[in-house]
Simulated assay, not measured.
Amino acid sequence: MKAYMGRASFVALCVVLCAGCALLSPVKIDTKKYVLDRIPLDLPIAQAHSATLLVLVPETDPIYATTQMTYTSQAYQIAYFSQNEWAETPSQMIQPLIVETLRRTHYFSEILAPPHFGSHTYALRTEILELKQDFSSNPAILRLTMRFYLSREVTAQVIATKELSVQEPLRDRSPYAGVVAANEAMVYVLRELAKFTVEKAH
């Protein structure tokens, strides 16, 4: 009887210890990852030129130089979603979109991107100034602001600049709706960037 009680106590102790370990184990939280990958279909198709273009990696405000997705719910505040993030930094996702968009205009004979610099006629530098979901407004909106600089390689002189700011409404107040709005805003920005680059590179 004593042996039975001893075994029962041992089993009970093991159950308690295992339960305690389970409580102390970190909870696994699945993080959803999202991408910016849309390119405008209605691009200006220009006559081909011999000029070449170098598309530099976009510079980014430090707030947005991360895979964390930013949002604001009140003035002067920036926060990051805990279970939703970008698959890559905005800069890493946007640069190939710029390259592909400008290739589809057929204006430049070649479009280069780092690390392949090579000789080029023009260089395009971009800045990501803002990329956040704004829940302080009604409806909530996605704010995207970018600035472009086009320069000549020979003189390194900036020949044209343009800043675009887009406010795209969210379908609902959720991180995913913000991603959809960000892709819509990106389509508009890329279309305007293509027009700007082709017009100023004449």
Rank of each mutant, 00 (worst) to 15 (best):
R152Q: 11
Q157N: 12
R152P: 05
V180Q: 09
S25G: 00
T66Q: 04
T121M: 03
L23Q: 04
L17R: 07
P44G: 00
I141C: 08
G118A: 01
E130A: 15
N138H: 14
H116W: 06
N183V: 11
A3I: 14
E100T: 08
L13F: 14
M69T: 09
D134H: 09
I159T: 00
R143D: 12
R147Y: 02
Y107N: 01
T197C: 12
A182W: 15
I94W: 15
A12F: 05
F81R: 05
Y149K: 12
S50W: 06
R104Q: 13
M69L: 12
L144I: 15
H116E: 04
F108S: 00
Y64F: 15
T31P: 01
T31G: 01
A12S: 06
T89D: 13
R7G: 13
M146T: 12
V166P: 00
K132W: 13
I159F: 07
M186E: 14
E100Y: 07
G118R: 03
V27Q: 09
L54M: 04
V154A: 09
M5L: 12
V158Y: 03
E88A: 15
Y4W: 09
I78Y: 13
A181I: 10
H120G: 01
H202T: 08
Q77Y: 14
I98L: 10
S109H: 05
V166T: 01
Q68W: 00
L193F: 10
A51G: 03
A140W: 05
S82W: 08
I39D: 08
E163Q: 10
V27N: 14
S151A: 06
L41V: 13
M186D: 14
V189F: 12
T161F: 09
K2Q: 10
L164G: 07
V55Y: 02
L53P: 00
A65R: 01
K28N: 07
T70M: 11
A48C: 04
R104P: 03
I29L: 02
S91I: 12
S165E: 06
A65N: 15
D172L: 07
W86H: 11
E110F: 05
L97K: 08
Q47C: 06
N138T: 15
M69P: 15
P175C: 05
S73G: 12
A19C: 07
L193E: 12
S25Q: 01
S50M: 07
V11K: 12
L43T: 07
R147F: 02
K162C: 08
W86S: 06
V166H: 04
F117E: 07
A113T: 07
E199V: 08
V179H: 10
Y80V: 02
I94Q: 14
R125C: 03
Y122T: 04
Y176S: 13
A51I: 02
T105V: 02
P169S: 04
G20C: 05
E184W: 02
A140F: 09
A181K: 10
Y4K: 13
F196V: 04
P96E: 02
Q77K: 13
Y188P: 10
E127W: 11
R38E: 11
F81K: 02
V198E: 02
K200Y: 13
Y80C: 01
E59I: 12
M93R: 13
E59M: 11
N183W: 15
L23V: 00
V187A: 07
L124I: 05
S174M: 05
L150K: 00
T126G: 03
M5K: 10
C18N: 05
M186W: 14
L170G: 05
R38T: 13
I111M: 00
I63T: 03
S73W: 14
